[in-house]
C-alpha cells in the first residue's frame, strides 16, 4: 500500500490523538502508582519496569491507533511529539507532581518519545507490504525496546541508577511482552473504527 506524507486534517487528528493520550495517561496514572505496582506488587526489578510495562505500551497503543486510523508518513512522529508537548504543558500548567525518575516533561523525555515515534515510523514504512496485524505486532516490541534502551542509557543513570545486568533479561522480556500486547490491542481497537469509517464513506 502506497503511503504519502500525512498532511492537513489527518495530521491534526494525529496530534489530537497524541494530546488526548497524554491527558488520559496523566489522569489514569497519578504519581507513585506505577512504581508501587511494579516494585511493591509485581516485584519486578528496576529501574525501567514501569516504562517497559506501562508507559511504553501505552504510548505505543496511542501511536499505533493514530497511524492505523490515519495512514501516512509522519503520523507516528506527530502523535508522539503531540503527546510529549501536551504532557509537559499539562504538568507545568497544573503543577502536577510526577515521578522524578522518569524525567517526565523534560527535554530528555521529549527525545525519548520522539525516538519511539521515529522507530514506529520506520517499522511502519518497512512493513508497508505486510498485513496491519503483523505490522502492529512487530512495531510494538521494537519501539518499546528502543524507548527502554534510551531510558536505561540516557535517563535513569541521571535520575535513579544504572540498571543491573542481571535484571536486563527480565526487563527485556517485559519490554517485548508489553510491546506485543500493546500492538495486538491497537489492532483490535482499530478494526471496528476502520469499519465504521468505511461504512460512513460509502454512505
Amino acid at each position: 500500500m502506497k503511503r504519502g506524507a500525512i498532511h492537513g486534517g489527518a495530521a491534526g487528528a494525529c496530534a489530537a490523538i497524541g494530546a488526548a493520550g497524554a491527558l488520559v495517561f496523566l489522569f489514569a496514572f497519578p504519581k507513585g502508582s506505577i512504581t508501587t505496582l511494579m516494585h511493591d506488587v509485581l516485584n519486578l526489578p528496576g529501574p525501567g519496569a514501569g516504562i517497559a510495562l506501562i508507559f511504553g505500551p501505552f504510548l505505543i497503543l496511542v501511536v499505533l491507533l493514530s497511524s492505523i486510523l490515519f495512514p501516512g508518513i509522519g503520523a507516528a512522529v506527530i502523535t508522539t511529539l503531540a503527546f510529549g508537548v501536551a504532557y509537559g504543558l499539562t504538568v507545568w500548567m497544573f503543577e502536577m507532581p510526577t515521578n522524578p525518575k522518569g524525567a517526565f516533561g523534560s527535554a530528555l523525555f521529549m527525545i525519548a518519545v520522539a525516538l519511539l515515534g521515529v522507530t514506529a515510523e520506520v517499522v511502519n514504512f518497512l512493513g508497508r507490504g505486510i498485513k496491519d496485524v503483523w505490522r502492529c505486532v512487530l512495531a510494538g516490541p521494537v519501539a518499546n525496546v528502543v524507548l527502554c534502551a534510551f531510558y536505561w542509557v540516557a535517563i535513569f543513570p541521571r535520575t535513579a541508577r544504572w540498571v543491573e545486568l542481571g535484571d536486563l533479561p527480565v526487563l527485556f522480556g517485559v519490554c517485548l511482552v508489553g510491546g506485543v500486547v500493546s500492538g495486538c490491542v491497537a489492532f483490535g481497537l482499530t478494526r471496528p473504527l476502520c469499519r465504521a469509517r468505511t461504512i460512513e464513506q460509502k454512505e
Binding site: P30, K31, G32, S33, T35, T36, L37, M38, H39, D40, V41, G46, P47, N99, K101, A160, R161
Partner: peptide, 11 residues
C-alpha cells in the same frame, strides 16, 4: 531504590 510505596496512588 525506587522510593516509598504509595498504595493510595495505586488505589
Amino acid at each position: 531504590m525506587c522510593g516509598p510505596a504509595d498504595f493510595a496512588a495505586l488505589d
